[in-house]
């Protein structure tokens, strides 16, 4: 019972705050380009509208077309609830929960991939193939980053791993995790959320055929995932666990805001990479995390 009472407010927090991030990114992009841009709350309006709309289903689609996004959303939400919020406390923190987090994100990927393949469209097939392939490299980088944090703190539970500040390797780890964030959330330079050329997209092309509530669920899940990675990056670098609750909350909010603005700036200043360069950048992220791991080892020895 206490567990549920603890989880509910955190769930509400994630549920409500997550769609803010894409709005902030869009605002930053507009600001850099000298435009006014859409309101920060645009995604909320979109979600509310989509939730009320009807659905067009492909004639080929099975019920999995609707089940896939639902499962993916539950998986992302579950992963988010595993992430501790500094002094606000982690949910059921236990040894090895960082592996559960990584695998829940994988389950979410499986759900969206399944739903995309339902339509039998070559475009969606292309998107899924890219998504699952690049995820291989992203996951290698992510697990290496986790290993670095584990080695640094001597623990395998998220609450203990993320409490202290990253050591000398903070910059490496932050850079690596930031690249993973961009890749996993399909931002520039990996993918362009604004593009309208299907051949060049990853995430957007996977949801081409979705509409109505399933699309709303997918978009909300994607924003939760973005917030999840931004928080993970912030907590990995800042000593959130050592601060007083109020300060920690401010630090988390500031960190997430900084990461989001950073993503927006990257999006404004960089062009999307050619697809054959994508593995190179992801490998670089992996190497950054690997060097962080080596430094953590050296620090421990």
């Amino acid at each position: 019972m206490t567990l549920i009472l603890d989880l509910l407010p955190r769930f509400a927090l994630w549920f409500v705050l997550a769609p803010l991030l894409p709005g902030i990114i869009n605002k930053v992009k507009a600001w850099v380009a000298g435009r006014r841009g859409p309101p920060v709350l645009q995604l909320y309006y979109d979600l509310a509208r989509l939730w009320r709309k009807g659905v067009v289903l492909s004639t080929l689609a099975s019920p999995g077309f609707v089940f896939g996004p639902a499962v993916a959303w539950v998986a992302v939400m579950g992963a988010a609830l595993l992430l501790p919020l500094g002094p606000a406390g982690g949910a059921p923190g236990f040894r090895g929960d960082m592996l559960v987090l990584i695998y829940l994100l994988a389950l979410a990927r499986f759900g969206t991939a399944w739903a995309a393949m339902e339509t039998g469209s070559a475009f969606e097939g292309m998107g899924v193939a890219r998504e699952v392939s690049y995820a291989v490299l992203a996951e290698a980088a992510l697990i290496t980053a986790m290993l670095a944090l584990c080695v640094q703190t001597g623990s395998t539970s998220l609450a203990a791993m993320l409490a202290p500040a990253a050591g000398a390797d903070a910059a490496l780890l932050a850079a690596g995790l930031f690249v993973v964030l961009l890749a996993e959330n399909c931002r520039v330079p990996f993918d362009d959320p604004n593009t309208h050329l299907e051949l060049t997209m990853i995430h957007e092309v996977m949801v081409l055929d979705h509409s109505g509530p399933p699309l709303a669920v997918i978009l909300h899940g994607a924003s939760v995932k973005l917030l999840l990675f931004a928080l993970l990056l912030t907590e990995a670098v800042l000593p959130v666990g050592k601060l007083a609750p109020g300060v920690a909350a401010a630090a988390l909010a500031g960190g997430v805001l900084a990461v989001t603005v950073g993503a927006g700036l990257v999006e404004s200043l960089l062009a999307r990479l050619a697809f054959r360069r994508v593995p190179l950048l992801l490998t670089t992220a992996f190497l950054l995390c690997l060097f962080a791991l080596l430094m953590a080892w050296k620090g421990g020895a």
């Binding site: 939730w51 492909s58 609707v66 499962v71 469209s121 081409l208 055929d209 509530p213």
Partner: peptide
């Protein structure tokens, strides 16, 4: 997951759906 799948299915049906060609 089962509850969410069922809920989304119900909501989609309540909103009304129609079948169409894959948009492609």
């Amino acid at each position: 997951a089962v509850a969410a799948a069922a809920g989304l299915w119900w909501k989609s049906r309540a909103n009304g759906w129609r079948r169409g060609l894959t948009w492609d």
